[in-house]
């Protein structure tokens, strides 16, 4: 198989909110990439910067108070941060499309479904006839598995269930065959049986149309079922990155390990759940040392003084933890491992 090209590459991205109570570095030097046709997961707990990362890619961060203060966002090797707003409008919905957690907030309650899809199409297909646009809209509604597509065109968002609205959002995002679809918690507001339908749809789109997907979620189960590779975020930073299989079989960062162990497993009952002590920190609240140190069972003196980088464990696996710093030597890591077991 041909080596797949990097389609979207986020390099050293920094997005900061300038608020009355100070600067919040919501996205703090974040790096990752999505390859052609790949499904990449970004996983992390509330407030770790997942949504701000995706809004930054689309350049939809509310400004003020938010601002992208550094880094590059390369799409097909062109830096999106250097594009004008007009050029960005072309790109959004055409090459890079996004769907949001709460479909109701992104659908206009005053317009019919048909109107809204037609508008999304006509924005990019300026010379299409009304008939062409309408046919395409119906085709898209069918593609995402909505029954009664023609009647639905005449209905309003409130007449649809949550799962149907999310399908409409996906249909709208796909009207121009985007190369990357950014999906920010697309199923979090939905029931599990509906979530299963939507995740299946996304997997099919990825397979049939080769759309690359950046799937943002806090649910490790969703990651395991849909993603090829995973980026784990904590307090505004990427703390681990590896193929999905590897993350679950060999999680390295103490936070990732804790996260995986704290999920109750439906398949067999544990007496007691593993729990990570303490709370998720607010971005910017930890000025010095590793951001996980206060909750980390393996923390040692260096963790309180210096800030860890992403260290390579292997070609495909990186971890932001001193235990994986070659300088630290294998000794320290082994000591930690023995001390733990």
């Amino acid at each position: 198989m041909r080596e797949r090209q990097k389609l979207l590459e986020v390099k050293d991205l920094q997005t900061t909110f300038f608020t009355d109570s100070g600067e919040i570095p919501a996205v703090d030097h974040v790096d990752f990439y999505v390859r052609e046709g790949e499904v990449l997961g970004i996983v992390g707990e509330s407030g770790c910067g997942k949504s701000v990362t995706s809004l930054s890619i689309m350049q939809l961060v509310p400004n003020p108070p938010g601002k992208i203060t550094g880094g590059e966002i390369l799409f097909e090797n062109q830096d999106l941060l250097k594009k004008t707003e007009k050029e960005m409008r072309e790109i959004r919905g055409n090459d890079v499309a996004m769907i949001f957690q709460e479909p109701m907030t992104s659908l206009n309650p005053l317009f019919t479904i048909g109107n809204q899809i037609a508008e999304a199409i006509s924005l990019h297909k300026k010379n299409w006839s009304k008939k062409q646009i309408k046919d395409r809209a119906i085709e898209m509604l069918r593609l995402v598995g909505l029954p009664r597509a023609e009647e639905l065109m005449k209905e309003y968002p409130h007449q649809l269930s949550g799962g149907m609205r999310q399908r409409v959002m996906i249909a709208m995002a796909l009207v121009c065959d985007p190369k990357v679809l950014i999906a920010d918690e697309p199923t979090t507001a939905l029931d599990v049986t509906i979530q299963a339908q939507i995740l299946k749809l996304m997997r099919e789109l990825n397979e049939r149309m080769n759309t690359a997907i950046l799937l943002i979620t806090h649910d490790l189960g969703v990651v395991a079922e849909t993603c090829e590779r995973v980026v784990v975020m904590y307090a505004g930073q990427v703390i681990e990155e590896a193929p999905t299989q590897e993350i679950f079989e060999n999680p390295c960062h103490p936070y990732t390990r804790g996260l995986i162990q704290s999920v109750p497993d439906m398949r067999d009952k544990k007496e007691r759940l593993y729990s990570i002590p303490g709370n998720v920190p607010k971005p910017g609240s930890i000025k010095k040392g590793c951001r996980f140190a206060a909750r980390c069972e393996s923390a040692f003196s260096r963790c309180w003084e210096e800030t860890p980088e992403l260290y390579r464990n292997s070609d495909v696996h990186q971890t932001r933890c001193f235990l994986y710093d070659e300088q630290e030597g294998v000794t320290n890591r082994d000591e930690q491992a023995t001390a733990k077991s």
């Binding site: 599990v192 189960g221 395991a224 079922e225 679950f248």
Partner: peptide, 11 residues
């Protein structure tokens, strides 16, 4: 319902 729950184990 049981089969719809995503299981955190890729294997």
């Amino acid at each position: 319902l049981l089969s719809a729950v995503p299981v955190p184990d890729p294997n």
